[in-house]
Amino acid sequence: MKTTITRRSVLATGLAGLASPVWATEAIETADPAVEMVRHNVSSFKRVDWRDHFDDLGVGVIVADTDSRAVHFWNADESIYRIYPSSVPLSEDLTRLGYTEVVRKVAGPTWTPTPSMRERDPSLPKMIPAGPKNPLGTHALYLSWQYYRIHGTHDTRKIGRKSSDGCIGLYNEMIAELYGMVKVGTRVRLI
């Protein structure tokens, strides 16, 4: 099955349709370079099975695949499965792999640079409140690892690329959907 994506449809939907798992298997035709990264992400998604990473679903599980740059989510009874294109850390030094869990959910998060960010760039502001300049976008899932988040971004150029300081970024529309489904205690594995 082929689906044609136009720049107009991408801008109109905010790529919300990509949240459906069917997108992982559809071919995308586009001549628009602004959508090229979406083609890359969709074609490079590999199917992940939660059973390869967890014994049970608990209240839900997330597998963030840093290789294919995709976030997979299953709810507690496996009636919902979603896959989202994501950004991943810039380098392996910033990538932390393993098991963690969602410990807090925040709509309209504030952003505070980490000590290592401040060391690299002392001119960074102490804090950025919620809004269009906030690097965490509209929603954030705080993980049990200090400074690590699954969050939105207002800079959609980052999705599908290595562009993060350790966090996993999603389009704002997609993190809003995921935020609504995820419960505190959802287990997460970064692979």
Rank of each mutant, 00 (worst) to 15 (best):
V59H: 00
S164Q: 10
W145K: 07
V10S: 08
E29Q: 09
P85R: 11
T30R: 02
M37W: 14
T156Y: 08
T6D: 02
Y99G: 11
Y81D: 08
W50F: 04
Q146W: 05
R47D: 06
A140D: 04
D165T: 02
A16V: 15
G60H: 01
V42F: 00
M127Q: 15
G166L: 04
A12N: 10
D55A: 13
N75A: 03
K183Q: 13
T13K: 11
S86Y: 05
A27C: 09
M181P: 02
K183Y: 03
L170Y: 04
I168S: 11
E101Q: 12
T4Y: 09
V63K: 01
L11M: 11
R189P: 06
S86Q: 05
I80R: 13
A16L: 15
D155Y: 05
K126H: 02
H154R: 08
E173M: 15
D67I: 07
N75I: 02
G169N: 14
E29Y: 08
R149D: 00
P125F: 02
I83D: 02
E36P: 08
S87I: 08
I5S: 01
V22A: 13
P113G: 06
R51A: 10
T95D: 10
L97F: 07
I168G: 12
D77A: 03
E177D: 15
T13D: 14
S79D: 04
L170W: 04
Y81G: 07
L124G: 03
A24E: 01
E173F: 11
G14E: 02
H40L: 15
F45I: 15
L190N: 09
D65G: 10
V102A: 00
L97E: 13
I168M: 13
W50H: 10
T25I: 09
R149L: 12
I128T: 10
D93C: 04
M174C: 14
S91W: 01
L11Q: 09
E92M: 08
D77H: 00
I150F: 05
A176N: 14
P125C: 03
A19C: 14
G185V: 14
D56F: 07
L141H: 03
D55N: 14
T30K: 05
M117G: 09
A34C: 11
L18D: 11
V71F: 03
D65T: 04
P115W: 05
P132D: 08
W23R: 07
H72E: 01
D121F: 00
V184K: 06
S68C: 13
T13I: 09
S164W: 09
K2W: 04
S79F: 01
T110P: 00
T114V: 10
M181A: 10
S79C: 04
T25K: 07
V48K: 05
N41A: 14
L170K: 06
V103F: 00
S116A: 11
T110H: 03
G17S: 06
S68A: 13
P129T: 12
D32Y: 01
R189Y: 12
T153V: 03
G17Y: 13
